[in-house]
Write a protein that binds this DNA or RNA. Structure first.
Length: 364
DNA sequence: AAACCGGGGAG
DNA sequence: CTCCCAGGTTT
């Protein structure tokens, strides 16, 4: 039986060999500016290259330097991030830009320990920036790395436990080519993303297959192993599209919940779907908010679904006309002319409503 | 340690 | 439909 060490060195050597001919050409490869490397890494967290690429270009153009990003209003940053998801990334990106601009004189930190202090930067992103921007010997561990290593070394320990994560991190670090950590990190991620795929990996044409434990044992399809299952809960959102004098009411989502700092409409959330206008009219919030306004329900959309990581949102949009504002409807609501709606960042399900104009399914 | 945080594409 | 993606923060 060959030693673990030989197996490790075979891995690194052949991975780099593969990378020479098969790496992915991406806009930020070879990028020297730490700011742009950081930006690309934040955008690509839990995000496929194809989805993140246009956002990277938008941000790069609008904010060429970290100080440009730092000086931007948060609503503007959120608007640019609109549709990409995981909006805490945008808030943290903005906060970190201010920190770098104000506390670090606009100079991007060049040590791992300092880089990982930035909001929104964890072990993966810190290693990526340290290796790509500064040539420092830190191995990245992302979804690709878990998959590639668990298969090649036949590791059946779950990747979503603390001890599992520590073991993979240690192995990844041991495999790192410390002479060219950036190239190595690119190589293993490219290999995972284009060759050692989650489903139907290209094992037939793989330099590593003869020493790949999972390939030899036919366990490719079960690796990597995750121990936990995600539980989803359902939420029913009834959005009130309240029209008055050619304006519509929106509000900012400031509460501790999904879509923080994005905008949406006055919302009545219920345990089950509200089916029909009498049920809506009986709702306590409907009565409270719209008392004395002469509100009339004009129509309702079909239920529209949006899946999040831990939740399924079922949204309906209720078209409502009022005769007089009868304020205070709610101090947090803002009346906005329809043509100005495009200036605010909305969650996907609302953007979908804007674009498809699915309303109304039923007219009342 | 467990829960939470989006959206899209592939199969 | 399920799975997973250049993960990180909060509790």
């Amino acid at each position: 039986m060959k030693s673990r060490k030989q197996k490790e060195s075979f891995f690194t050597k052949n991975l780099l060999l593969w990378h020479k001919s098969s790496h992915r050409p991406l806009p930020w490869k070879g990028e020297k500016k730490p700011y742009l490397i950081w930006l690309s890494e934040i955008i690509l967290q839990q995000t496929r290259v194809g989805q993140g690429l246009p956002y990277f270009e938008k941000f790069k153009k609008k904010y060429p330097a970290v100080t440009d990003l730092a000086n931007a209003p948060e609503d503007e940053v959120m608007k640019l991030w609109e549709g990409l998801g995981y909006y805490s990334r945008a808030r943290n990106l903005h906060a970190a830009a201010k920190y770098i601009s104000n506390e670090l004189n606009g100079i991007f930190p060049d040590q791992y320990k300092e880089i990982i202090k930035l909001k929104g930067v964890g072990p993966y992103t810190a290693a990526a920036i340290a290796s790509f921007a500064f040539g420092l010997p830190y191995a990245v561990v992302d979804g690709n790395v878990y998959r590639v290593l668990s298969r090649y070394f036949g590791i059946e320990e779950p990747i979503d436990t603390t001890s599992g994560k520590n073991k993979f991190a240690a192995l990844a670090q041991a495999l790192l080519d410390t002479e060219k950590p950036g190239t190595y990190n690119q190589a293993i991620m490219d290999f995972g993303a284009t060759h050692c795929l989650p489903a139907m990996p290209k094992c037939g044409d793989c330099l590593l297959k003869n020493k790949c434990t999972a390939f030899q044992k036919n366990t490719i399809s079960i690796l990597p192993i995750k121990s936990k299952k995600i539980i989803k809960r359902q939420r029913f959102f009834n959005y009130l599209l309240i029209d008055f004098e050619n304006k519509i009411y929106i509000k900012k989502r400031t509460q501790k919940d999904i879509w923080q700092n994005l905008y949406d409409f006055p919302l009545i959330e219920t345990d089950k779907i509200i089916d029909g206008q009498p049920a809506l009219k009986e709702n306590i919030f409907f009565k409270k908010w719209l008392a004395g306004t002469g509100a009339k329900i004009r129509g309702v959309s079909a239920p529209m679904k949006q899946d999040l990581t831990h939740q399924r949102i079922i949204a309906r949009f209720w078209k409502i006309e009022i005769q007089n504002p009868g304020f205070p409807i709610n101090n947090n609501w803002k009346a906005v002319p329809h043509k100005n709606l495009k200036n605010f960042a909305f969650p996907k399900v609302i953007d979908l409503y804007f674009r498809k104009k699915l309303l109304p399914l039923k007219l009342f």
